[in-house]
Simulated assay, not measured.
Amino acid sequence: MSDTPPHGITRRELRERAQEFKPANDQIRILMVCTGNVCRSPLAEVLLRSRVTGAPIRVHSAGTRALIDKPMTPDAQELAIAHGADTQEAGAHHARWLREPIAEDADLILAMSREHRSAAVELVPRMLRQTLTIREFARLSGALTDDDLRSTADAAGSSPRARLAAVTALISRQRGATAPAAPEDDDVIDPYRRSRETYETSAAQLVPAVDEVARVLHAAL
């Protein structure tokens, strides 16, 4: 077989054309963090993923003391599906440990509690301003309109990651501009090995926060 490319196109031209169609490494990476990575963070992961379908966003999760390779608990899976998550995605989850490369790769880390927020920042200190609890993020961003978010993102240009970085910085600055919340109001209660009622309480805290994160992402992008 001949090594000559077809139609008179040189190999260099083929390489250059292939390069044009390679996706840019500009996909937003959002990391959810909890303890075991079988209840709260995978619930947040699959719910947010269902709300940003088609956007250049990768949502994943990890645990500070993960039950490695374990699936979401049955109650968490049921609640995920009830709140709009894809059934197959909820069923395909396998827990993984929070490691430095995973945290280092994230553009935004959303922790389920202040404890998890601290653990992520200790692992990657440079992520201090990009790491919030998910309820903290929702509380702070709730003071901003879609126009506020969009204008901030527009000033950062067209890159999805740059737009998110600008919006995250704006939200982080709200820490000093809004009234402080009670510490427990920024945490999502841990339902692991507890009653179905506790799972539902935990989801009731988490789902509105996920919806607010989705609003921010849609406005920013």
Rank of each mutant, 00 (worst) to 15 (best):
Leu79Gly: 07
Glu115Gly: 14
Gly84Trp: 06
Ser158Lys: 12
Asp154His: 11
Arg135Asn: 07
Val167Cys: 10
Gly157Gln: 06
Ala92Gly: 03
Ala111Tyr: 00
Gln130Lys: 15
Asp147Ile: 15
Ala166Leu: 07
Asp75Ser: 15
Arg96Leu: 02
Asp86Gln: 02
Arg99Pro: 00
Arg117Asn: 10
Gly157Arg: 01
His94Met: 14
Ala92Met: 01
Ala155Thr: 09
Ala166Gly: 08
Arg173Gly: 15
Gln174Val: 11
Gln130Thr: 13
Pro125Met: 00
Leu79Ala: 02
Pro56Ser: 09
Arg99Leu: 09
Pro56Asn: 03
Val167Arg: 06
Thr53Val: 12
Asp105Met: 08
Leu98Asp: 01
Thr87Leu: 09
Thr152Gln: 14
Leu128Tyr: 14
Trp97Tyr: 12
Ser172Lys: 15
Asp146Lys: 03
Asp148Leu: 11
Leu170Cys: 06
Arg126His: 13
Ser113Lys: 12
Leu170Gly: 08
Met127Ala: 12
Glu104Met: 13
Ala90Lys: 06
Gly54Tyr: 04
Ile171Val: 15
Met127Ser: 07
Arg129Glu: 15
Arg96Glu: 04
Arg117Lys: 15
Ser159Gln: 09
Ala153His: 06
Ala85Arg: 03
Glu100Gly: 02
His116Trp: 02
Thr87Met: 12
Ile68Gln: 05
His83Cys: 11
Gln88Trp: 12
Ala166Gln: 06
Glu136Phe: 08
Ala155Asp: 11
Ile102Asp: 02
Ser158Phe: 03
Ala119Lys: 10
Arg135Cys: 13
Thr152Val: 14
Arg126Ile: 14
Ala90Cys: 02
Ala95Asn: 03
Trp97Lys: 09
Ala153Ile: 11
Leu67Met: 12
Pro125Lys: 02
Pro74Asn: 09
Glu136Val: 10
Leu149Tyr: 02
Ala120Ser: 14
Asp148Glu: 10
Ala55Asp: 09
Thr133Asn: 05
